[in-house]
Computed example of a mutant assay.
Amino acid sequence: MAATDFDTTLPSIRQLQNWIKEKTSVEFKLMSGDVITGKVFWQDINCVCIVDANEEKTIVWKLAIAYMKARS
C-alpha cells in the first residue's frame, strides 16, 4: 500500500467514518488551541470537513488536529 492510499482499516479512519454515518456532533481541538465543533461531513487522506450549527463548512488539515471526540 502506498503512503498516499486511504487506509480504511485504521481505527481513526473507521471512527471518523462512523461519525459521518451517524451524524455525530464532534469536537476538534486544534494544535493552535482553537476548538471547532460540528458534524464531520467528509474526510480524505489529508483533511476533514466539519459542518457547524449554521451549516458552514470548515476544512481542517488532519495534521492540525490535537484531538477529536464525540460530544455528548
Rank of each mutant, 00 (worst) to 15 (best):
I59D: 03
V26F: 02
T58G: 00
I20N: 06
A64R: 13
S32I: 10
K57C: 00
T58A: 00
I13K: 05
Y67C: 02
M31I: 14
D34W: 10
F28W: 10
L30K: 14
T9F: 03
M68I: 01
A53M: 04
K29D: 08
A70V: 00
A66Y: 14
K69E: 02
M68S: 05
I45V: 15
V60T: 02
N54R: 12
S25H: 08
M1C: 02
V48L: 08
I36Y: 14
V40N: 00
D52T: 15
E27D: 04
M31A: 08
Q43C: 01
I65K: 12
L63D: 05
W61G: 01
Q43T: 11
K23H: 13
T4E: 15
Q43Y: 06
F6T: 09
G38Y: 06
K69C: 00
C49R: 12
V26W: 03
F28Y: 13
N46H: 15
M31V: 11
N54G: 01
Y67M: 04
W42Y: 06
Q15K: 10
N46D: 12
S32K: 15
E55F: 08
D7M: 09
Q15G: 01
K62G: 00
L10S: 07
K62S: 03
V48K: 05
Y67H: 04
N18K: 11
I20P: 01
Q17I: 01
K23E: 12
T37D: 03
S12F: 11
A53F: 11
T37L: 03
I59W: 02
D34H: 14
M1W: 12
E27A: 07
M68T: 02
I59T: 06
T4C: 13
E56G: 01
T37E: 07
K23S: 09
Y67K: 05
K21R: 12
A70M: 01
M68A: 01
V35N: 14
L16Q: 10
A64W: 05
L16F: 13
